[in-house]
């Protein structure tokens, strides 16, 4: 039983290119990007303004129309819709594809043998970062319970690492090639950063320097305090965005792995359905929250 279960809270390194560690989540993210870009290129060449569009054009129009309608429903202003739409749509498509790619059967089981040196480097880096036990290779069902809280994960990781270290690094380590990009905290942090930075840019674009009144306001002591809270909330948004998405998707991954480990036939099926739904909802939540933040940043206090 202990041999099959493989859960790692952080993305695992596949190879190093020019000093950059290529992890399995990066690989999957690039794959998703290539898929999206390929679809966009095919659509671009198939697009024709005719009364009977092709299947691909219909599909592209369906997606764009639905997302455009969603954005326009919130902004209610065509100029804002056209400005926000590319960001919101790209967030949605990138996140949903990353979420769903992890559900394709075989994605977690196609593995690459990474040499011992790489694994050792990994181990050293983990030992140096005493407080940061990111790579978890758990050969026990108990690890699934550890997903519930970060503290629990850390404790289980310490135990697991202590138990498994001698056998684990004795030879090449099998690492899954694919891992959903959104199941990696680095991806979700980068998405959250983009969302918040672009929100500030749009705020300044629409309200000029008046946008900063939200954060720095000396009109009254209360407003000054509110400004500080607003400033803190901007940083809180990054954490909230990143950990919500990462937590939901990673938890789903763990749930599926554990269910498949306990009973590989039939039992995981409802959970796959659930994860499909969660993947969609998380993409929608991220996109909608970003859209609301964009919209709020571009509306002045008086207008609001």
């Amino acid at each position: 039983m202990a041999a099959g279960l493989h859960i790692s809270i952080s993305a695992e390194r596949l190879l190093t290119l020019g000093g950059l560690n290529i992890t399995n989540s990066m690989f999957t993210s690039v794959l998703v990007s290539l898929l999206l870009i390929s679809f966009a290129i095919i659509t671009k060449f198939k697009l024709k303004n005719v009364s009977k569009p092709t299947v691909i054009q219909n599909f592209a129009e369906m997606i764009v129309e639905a997302l455009h309608g969603l954005v326009h429903g919130v902004t209610g202003d065509l100029k804002r819709t056209r400005l926000f739409f590319p960001f919101i749509s790209t967030f949605f498509l990138v996140i949903i594809l990353n979420n769903w790619l992890g559900l394709i059967p075989g994605v977690g089981t196609i593995k690459l043998l990474v040499n011992e040196e790489a694994a050792k480097v990994e181990e050293v880096s983990q030992t140096e970062k005493a407080s940061d036990h990111s790579n978890v290779l758990v050969d026990s069902v108990q690890a699934s319970e550890a997903v519930a809280t970060e503290e629990a994960i850390t404790l289980e990781t310490e135990e697991a690492t202590q138990e498994e270290t001698p056998s684990e690094h004795s030879g090449p380590v099998a690492v899954p090639i694919f891992r959903p990009g959104t199941a990696d905290i680095n991806t979700t942090i980068s998405l959250a950063l983009i969302s918040i930075i672009v929100t500030q840019i749009f705020g300044v674009k629409y309200l000029k320097f008046g946008y900063f009144k939200k954060f720095i306001n000396f009109s009254s002591p209360i407003m000054f305090f509110v400004g500080i809270l607003e400033l803190i909330s901007e940083f809180a948004k990054i954490i909230s965005f990143a950990f919500r998405l990462f937590g939901n998707i990673f938890a789903g991954e763990v749930l599926l792995v554990v269910m498949a480990f306990l009973f590989p036939v039939i039992l995981p099926m409802p959970f796959y359905g659930l994860e499909l739904f969660v993947g969609f909802i998380q993409a929608l939540v991220f996109s909608m929250l970003t859209l609301v933040f964009f919209n709020m940043a571009t509306i002045s206090h008086e207008e609001h």
């Binding site: 809270i9 993305a11 560690n21 590319p86 749509s89 790209t90 940061d132 680095n186 980068s190």
Partner: peptide, 28 residues
């Protein structure tokens, strides 16, 4: 958790490329 600046930068660039490509090839 292993938060790495290089990976975050890589993902930001990756997202920007996708955003640009989709904007000019699909959305517009």
């Amino acid at each position: 958790m292993d938060i790495q600046l290089t990976q975050i930068l890589f993902q930001i660039i990756n997202f920007s490329v996708v955003l640009g490509a989709l904007t000019f090839l699909l959305y517009k």
